[in-house]
Design a protein around this nucleic acid. Structure first.
Lengths: 233, 233
DNA sequence: CTTGACCAAAGATGCTATCTATTAGTGTCA
DNA sequence: TGACACTAATAGATAGCATCTTTGGTCAAG
């Protein structure tokens, strides 16, 4: 640190450090920072400290006022859809809250995304979905959890990408996080249930056939399992 | 402009101007800017130009590389959930795309939010929802569109706020935008349909009674009307 | 003695100006 | 073709003025 020499990528380092500290609650809402304090703590110039705070301010993690300094905002005002913030929160020890928010979001969005894909996906995307559903069955029945997870993520991401809604597409990365964590935490059955495999195939074929209602309903069926696991019947 | 004197709020002015230019497509993806160009164009110092670009970079609207300058990103990489970006796009002549994305998002989220509120809202929030639903009927039957819109926004915002999902809550402002625009563009019937009024009351009473399934279904009923209007049957 | 109004100083950011270091694209020359 | 110098641009450091707003102190009135 403050070794005198200009360190490259200082910017990213500081944003990351302060962002993590705020997201984890280590820097509580109402805490105050000053530019000078940051300069000393991270061995950076005023320019970099300013830039950093500007970025965090645009995420609504902090606001700055003259004579006061930089103040950490209430969590309820944060831009909770910012991918960086989501990442920081998932890395903190408060990840459970973030996971359940994301899961609920997923339950809401994916059925409508499936309907959108049935209406607007390209021919190539429809074909790829069908092929991925077949992969899922094969890998699921073989019990290859690792490969199954990869195909599952690919399936759900492709759906979000091909549904024609740019906002849904932006959730791709977050949904992948949720799926990964679900497997990692052993919330997935060792062998995917046969009903789930069938529901994936139904989504794929409904999308391929342009049947919006069927796609939506089949996706809802997939997510019923998730609702059950979260206690949201 | 470049009158020499330091103008306060220079930062916000420049972010706004460049953000709008990018969001509207006036600055096409791949366009290049330089810090020096911005300094001259807006009469600001290098530091402010830097800050501005850092903020836009954190929204993924641009990226900057040495020797090249600041390059406008592909729209598919933008942080489309950033409230500022949403605002800029709604102000541009491409607002239709943004509205339909938001409406589809609303269709996805609100039923789950209603279920969440039925499970987790506070007593005060439940009571307020019931009261708002009554207001809606009164104002709707009286044909006071202006006051009806205000109550409608209050109803849907309260639902998002009380559903216990921080990510849903963050959508409050955007949903309000959608509702406002729906009325402004005359997509609302002059007198709200009686079915819609009843459905709002059903949502409120289901939330009040903690009946998650009924709340979700009643909200879906409200949104069916919206789906119909968008051609998403 | 307490309370309130006023005023001045201090502490912080906002912005400007200018400098060095670093990187990467470009063109030239063998 | 390949090596190498040139150069344009950002990354970062530093210094200083302008501006705002909080804080604390003084003084007068009750």
């Amino acid at each position: 640190m403050h070794d005198g020499g200009p360190s490259p990528a200082a910017q990213g380092r500081v944003i990351e450090a302060v962002g993590v500290a705020i997201a984890s609650g280590e820097l509580a809402p109402g805490s105050r920072l000053t530019l000078e304090g940051l300069q000393h703590e991270y061995g950076i110039s005023r320019t970099v400290a300013r830039d950093t705070m500007k970025v965090l301010e645009s995420m609504n993690l902090v606001y700055s006022r003259r004579r006061v300094g930089i103040v950490v905002q209430e969590p309820s005002l944060w831009n909770v859809f910012d991918p960086n913030l989501v990442r920081w929160r998932l890395a903190s020890d408060r990840r459970e809250l973030q996971y359940s928010s994301l899961t609920e979001l997923r339950i809401a969005v994916e059925p409508i995304a499936a309907a959108g894909a049935a209406r607007r996906a390209s021919a190539a995307e429809r074909a790829r979905l069908v092929s991925l559903a077949a992969d899922l069955r094969r890998l699921g029945e073989a019990g290859d959890l690792q490969a199954f997870l990869a195909a599952d993520i690919a399936f759900h991401q492709l759906l979000l990408r091909s549904c024609g809604n740019e906002m849904f597409r932006a959730l791709e990365g977050m949904i992948a996080e949720v799926l990964t964590s679900r497997t990692r935490q052993g919330l997935m059955p060792f062998k995917p249930r046969s009903e789930a495999l069938q529901a994936h195939e139904e989504v794929a074929s409904a999308v391929a056939g342009g049947d919006t209602a069927a796609a939506e309903q089949a996706m809802q069926h997939i997510l019923d399992e998730v609702r059950e696991a979260m206690g949201l019947h």
